[in-house]
Amino acid sequence: NGSPVPVPTPNLIRVVKNSNTLGIAIEGGANTRQPLPRIVTIQKGGSAHNCGQLKVGQIILEVNGISLRGREHKDAAKIIAEAFKTKEKDHIDFLVVDPG
């Protein structure tokens, strides 16, 4: 669209499932003020915290290559929950952006 909006660089972060919980809280989703899920909490002792790279405030663009764009909150949460639950992989790849 030509407007000079700075585009933050996405980061791919691999979270190894080394704890019984993922340990993040997210808010947002399609048709809300926050159209892509944003990390609002990271719980100590969870796999996300152990990974050391996920941060509060980051916006999740993709989970294991699945785009969260256009997905409503419950759908996005389900995708993340299922990525954690599946035994096919011992990790989850998050594509996130750090706003500002």
């Binding site: 993040i24 809280a25 048709n31 809300t32």
Partner: peptide, 15 residues
């Protein structure tokens, strides 16, 4: 000009 947020806030889910 004031920008109004008309979209609802989201719920929060712990995962």
């Amino acid at each position: 000009r004031e920008k109004r947020l008309t979209l609802p806030p989201s719920e929060i889910t712990l995962l």
